[in-house]
Design a protein around this nucleic acid. Sequence first.
RNA 1: GGGCGAUUAGCUCAGUUGGGAGAGCGCCUGCCUUACAAGCAGGAUGUCGGCAGUUCAAGUCUGUCAUCGCCCACCA
Length: 873
Amino acid sequence: MKENLAKTYSPLEIEAKWYPLWEEKGWFKPEVHPEGEPFCIVMPPPNVTGQLHMGHALDYTTQDILTRWRRMQGRRALWLPGTDHAGISTQAKVTESLAKEGLCKDDLGREAFLERTWEWKEKHHGRITHQLRQLGSSCDWSRERFTLDQGCSEAVNEVFVRLYEKGLIYRGSYLVNWCSKCQTNISDIEVEHKEQAGHLWHLRYPFADGSGFITVATSRPETILGDVAVAVHPDDQRYSGLIGKKLILPLVNREMELITDNYVDPAFGTGAVKITPGHDPNDFEVGLRHNLPQITVIGKNGTMTAAAGKYAGMTAAECRKRILEDFSILDLLAETEERPHNVGECYRCGTAVEPLISPQWFVKMAPLAGPAIEAAKSGDIKFIPERFAKVYLGWMENIRDWCISRQLWWGHRIPVWYCGDCGRVICQKAAPDSCPKCSSTKLEQDPDVLDTWFSSGLWPFSTLGWPGETTDLNDFYPTNVLVTARDIIFFWVARMIFSGLEFMGQKPFHHTFIHGLLLDAGGQKMSKSLGNGIDPIEIIDQVGADSLRFMLVTGSAPDSDIRFREERLEGARNFLNKLWNASRFTLMNLEDFSCGGEEEPELADIWIEERLRQAAASANAALEKYELGEAARALYEFVWDEFCDWYVELAKIRLYKGSPKQRYTAQSVLVRVLTGALQLLHPFIPFITEDLWQHLPHQGETIMLAEYPLGKGEPQLQAQGMELLKDIIRSARNLRAEMNVPPGKEAELVLMADPQFFPLFEQGQSYLNALCQAVCSWSEVYIPDQAVSAHVRGVDIFLPLKGLIDLEKEQARLEKEIKKAAGERQRLAAKLSNQGFLAKAPAEIVAKEREKEEEYGAKERALMERLAMLQGT
RNA sequence: GGGCGAUUAGCUCAGUUGGGAGAGCGCCUGCCUUACAAGCAGGAUGUCGGCAGUUCAAGUCUGUCAUCGCCCACCA
């Protein structure tokens, strides 16, 4: 026997102990079960310079539960960990730290800056992986990857070159989303649209011939400096005679034409739109259709360019103010209207995004989207919950080309070189020595790097060794399930799907399990800017990882968001404490115990083992459907409501007063059932279950065994008898409580029932005596002197209380009970006299209802009889 | 403008093939009963958002309205 358990559950002590051992013994490597069927999850890589937040905690807990569960079933389970270099985010952090030293990245130069960023990465990498360990993540660290490591970089270059050669990557000058703070462009989905209060200004543009004005409406007057035309709808009668007329752009005196384009909505504003191809996505398109010039008046740093003439050098905001003043002076400001409008912001820093024209690299999406759409439509890739398939499809079906270049230094550099002599563009995996066309050695690599998600999209296969042909790739691709939150379906899930299909010829995963988002106690999304985030590490330091994990997966449906509430954390902690104490109780009674003796099972033993089998079946069935909360709840209820509240109490009878064989049987069942519960709970709360398991007697060397073997439902009849005994015990306790019988006082308990019940009472007599604190007897006929009574499923329960009964109170209580029973009986009778019900409901339902009606009828009669007797005395 | 989700006890939420409304917390009563007061025994509490429909039967399916939330969208 091991040392006794501490009196109180102290998570911090036990949690520190186990992870190093698990890791040391290699339990998390798939080779633990070399013959098993493979199971694989690739971890959504956290930002290497970030730290664990509550969303990660839920995400990784979910993955860990699935992985541990499969591993315990004997699967060759691999949870592959890794981190993401997180281009923009990491570069911004390093830039920030430089700023504190009064430096900017250009002071260092590209090479030194990257060196520094790698140092930064190394420093933070340890923190995030330590946090993952603290959480209990059972991933295989020997296979850990990083999106910028050599293998992943090879995969990136391979993919880029293949797409380029296939004509699916192109470079061109287009209007992109420019973040002046991050100093890079970002893709369309990285722009967050927020509604802001704003204005719509109506401005008059004079006709060149002096014949009056046309009025346009704009929310961004500073962009008028880049106007090249005014457009109206071709069918708009108001302007039909004016098409083709020349206009003069005020302040700039540029001559422009009034053109027509279907894009214009005649019902909006004045029906006339100023066209600014350099700074508006729609106008950019209009400009292309009409061969209009593109004028850039706002620069990359957010100030007006030389093209803005006298406004050059001003910030856009200053310029707007000045332009409005100038229009006003010229009496060309017709109207100022209050109007909210959408402002695009950089998802990372919140800076307003400016549409700017610049040369960028793009991936042509249409050919890649086709198979990716088909995979989800055919159900080859299944989304859980299913509705997310529609979200995914909606995006994929309307996809636009993906801008993949970023004006950053930290990332995968675009594998393209330009010849300084002949201008040849060379795209290949490794740096060329000379230009293949003119042999020049004046080659310069494209300065940009790729969007971080370009490499993340390859994660399910790049981490398994692609483009090499590895055993891991062969074994584990396609992976089983991808677990993530809905906010990165477009960023990541979609890109992995089309990348996997294109380069592996196979989907990257069978299932996509989308879990909820973590909200604060008030229901708001946790975020840095709101400052309402709760640090999971702080919580782990307070109550342990097990409590946090259990809290995160219980009490919420698969597709709903989760509010983080302290009470629920306490609830989880209390449950673990309960488990701890039940184990402590068991261990305290095992001094003379060793496995392998002969047992003499009785009713309670058969019942609890049957209940364990049922709990195991429910938990496993729920996990198969990704209903983690449901699985955890089934186990919680089993441990607390069945094992602790009933079985432990029933076992005490034999532990304390039984024969050696009876005591041994109770010990065996306690150990066996507790062991089974620990196994089932292990995926959810690995630390405490491991610790308790180590204290319990068991055979074999394995730390954790496979799932509890499911037996046959044979002993069900016996178990039903136990349920009746439980009901009788509850009723008797209820009577005691209502009659204020002091807790310690032994009472008398008489059961009146058909003799068919007597063998059950015989088996359960010690239970009845102990749990009701009574001396229990039974007979077919019993005429009580003074007693309170109840009725449960054919059994009359009497608690004789000579001289203690308040007659009026007992009468009132009986009347209330009778009324309740009568109500139920009448409800059922009405149902059973309904011809439609009898004719159409399934026979078993009808039979069940009839049985219940009889039961309530019997109860009603028994109680009325008792009431009559009471009134007679 | 489109789409999706939510609405169940005082609070937070379960309720997955339609068949007697549940949990945790809180509240009330009584207990420090040698596993656990982070506990034990008992108790009270609901027109399952409104209306209409399908059905023998609706928290569960359909329609509609209301409120809240999220996502997508090029209306200057």
